[in-house]
Design a binder for these strands. Sequence first.
DNA 1: GTATCTGCAAAACATTTGCAATTCT
DNA 2: AGAATTGCAAATGTTTTGCAGATAC
Lengths: 136, 136
Amino acid sequence: MKEIKIKDYLFEHGIRPVNKRVKIMNYLVSKRNHPTAEMIYLELVNEIAGLSKTTVYNTLNLFVQEEVVHALNIESNELRYDADISQHGHFKCKECGEVYDFSFNKDLIQDLRLKNFVLKDFQFSINGICSICHQH
Amino acid sequence: MKEIKIKDYLFEHGIRPVNKRVKIMNYLVSKRNHPTAEMIYLELVNEIAGLSKTTVYNTLNLFVQEEVVHALNIESNELRYDADISQHGHFKCKECGEVYDFSFNKDLIQDLRLKNFVLKDFQFSINGICSICHQH
DNA sequence: GTATCTGCAAAACATTTGCAATTCT
DNA sequence: AGAATTGCAAATGTTTTGCAGATAC
C-alpha cells in the first residue's frame, strides 16, 4: 500500500493523517511483523527526524482506539501491534521468537456457558516450536 | 480439595509444600477466580501472618514453572493465575470485569501454515459483554 | 546443620501523564 | 489564530532482583 493510500485509509477512519502517523502505519502495513512500540521506535527514529517514543505510544493508542490496529497480548511483558484487523490467531516460537499468523473458526466454540454472551475481541495465541526450529 | 491433598499434590510436582505455598495453592483451587498477584496478596495477608508480595510472586512463578498453574495474559497490564491447567479459554466481561471459562476444541485451528509446528501452550481470550450485563 | 525460603528495599521495565513548545490547516 | 500534535521528564504500576535474616527438614 502506497503512503497516499494510507493517508486516505487513516482519514476515512477519523484519524488526521499527519506525517508521523502515516509513517508508523506504513511501517505496520508493510512489515507485518507484529512489532512492539520499542521496535517501531528503533526502526523509525533514524528515518523520522526527532521521533519520540511518546509519539509512537500516542499514535499506537490512537490507532487501537479507532480500530485500525489491534494490540496483541502474546507475551505478558510487552504489547505488540498488528495492522491486520481480520480475525486470526498468533503463534510465537519459543526458539526464534518469530510470530506467525494462523486462522481459526470461531463457530467451533460451542460452550453453553457463553450462551447470550456478546463476543467482541478474540485473542488466540499459541506458543511452541515452529517448523524451521523443529528440524534442528 | 483439602489442604492435606494440596500438600500431596504440590509434593508430587516437585514443590516443597511449605505453609505459604499450600495456602496460596488452596486459595487458587478453592476460589477459581483467576486472581492477580495483587488480589491474592490482599486476600491472604490477613490470614497469613507477615506475608509479603515478594513471596506471592515467588510462589506463583514457581507454580508456573512447575506447571501446576497457568499464567493468563487476559489483559495486558496484569497477569492472572489459574490452577485449572486443563485446556480452556477465558472470557472477560468489559462491564463487570468477571472472568468466565469456556471450552474449545483445538480442531478449530485448521491452518496449513502451522504444519509441522509443535503447539505447546494455548491462550484463548475473548472479551465482550456477559449475559448478565447484557440484559441491562 | 545446611539448603531453602522469606521479605525488605531498590531496581527494572513498559507504558502513561502533565505540560510547555511546536506544528498543522 | 486556534486546535491538534509532539516530546521531554517525571510518574505509575507491575514484576524482578540482591541480599541478609529466618525457617524447614
